[in-house]
Design a binder for these strands. Structure first.
Length: 243
DNA sequence: GCGACAG
DNA sequence: ATCTTGTCGC
């Protein structure tokens, strides 16, 4: 797939902040009327300590059955440090490489991180949505900024995430008895629709199936590129080779 | 100035 | 995010 030419990725943290403030004006925080989603993809990356190599991937699922229909991964130097608030500058380059290998674009993208629930309202889901030109949602495991009140224990319970007087996202309980996930729109998306999709994509576990599949794939890519022939071969052969 | 801080 | 074994609970 192709992607938008937004800006240079070889930037300093200071320049990255300026870019976020500029890119924010291009965001469309409204879901396209009559949005039809038949293919939804999850994106994620993994890396190793003391190494700048990153492994990124997209796993596309059938929106109805949530069964994987295609996937693509890539390996590349991350080239940007992890700085709270600038995650997209570290993760999007390698994801862009994987994106270009996809045969067709999914109708919706789910990122492992924030959308508008970000200090400058430009989390990785917003940046990624603009880069790939697809409706996107941010679904994070923890908060970056903002706070929320208590929410019910039942699956589907929600609580608004507020920051500086604005509602920037929603804490969503995707499963009873587990901590909530933090949902916010990325691009071409609104909060209610984002919450609705995250719940639909998380019928059984805390995190969306999209995120779970992408997370599993990038870890397989990292391990097989690194060495260790473990992980899934173990499941088929048990410990047959062990003494 | 101090503490917080997606992955 | 990653480093790591066992362990508590449904």
């Amino acid at each position: 797939m192709d992607l938008k030419l937004l800006h240079d990725w070889n930037v300093t943290p200071q320049e990255a902040v300026a870019l976020q403030n500029s890119l924010r004006e291009r965001l469309v925080l409204r879901a396209p009327s009559g949005l039809r989603v038949s293919r939804v993809a999850g994106a994620d990356i993994s890396t190793e300590r003391g190494n700048d190599t990153g492994y990124g991937a997209f796993v596309v699922l059938d929106a109805e059955s949530l069964a994987p229909v295609s996937q693509q991964g890539a390996e590349a130097p991350l080239g940007f440090p992890y700085v709270p608030g600038l995650l997209s500058f570290r993760e999007l380059p390698v994801l862009a490489a994987a994106w270009m290998r996809l045969e067709s674009a999914p109708d919706l993208l789910v990122f492992d991180g924030q959308g508008t629930a970000h200090p400058r309202r430009m989390g990785i889901a917003c940046h990624g949505g603009l880069l790939f030109g697809v409706p996107s949602i941010g679904c994070a495991k923890s908060l970056l900024v903002g706070s929320h009140g208590p929410l019910g224990e039942e699956r589907g319970a929600t609580a608004e995430i507020r920051h500086r007087g604005e509602v920037i996202g929603m804490a969503v309980r995707t499963r009873r008895g587990v901590s909530p996930v933090y949902v916010s729109p990325g691009h071409l998306m609104d909060l209610p629709t984002a919450v609705e999709w995250v719940l639909r994509l998380s019928p059984r576990y805390r995190e969306p199936e999209t995120t779970r599949h992408a997370h599993r794939l990038v870890n397989v890519l990292r391990r097989q590129a690194h060495g260790g022939l473990q992980g899934d071969v173990c499941g088929q052969w048990g410990r047959a080779w062990s003494p």
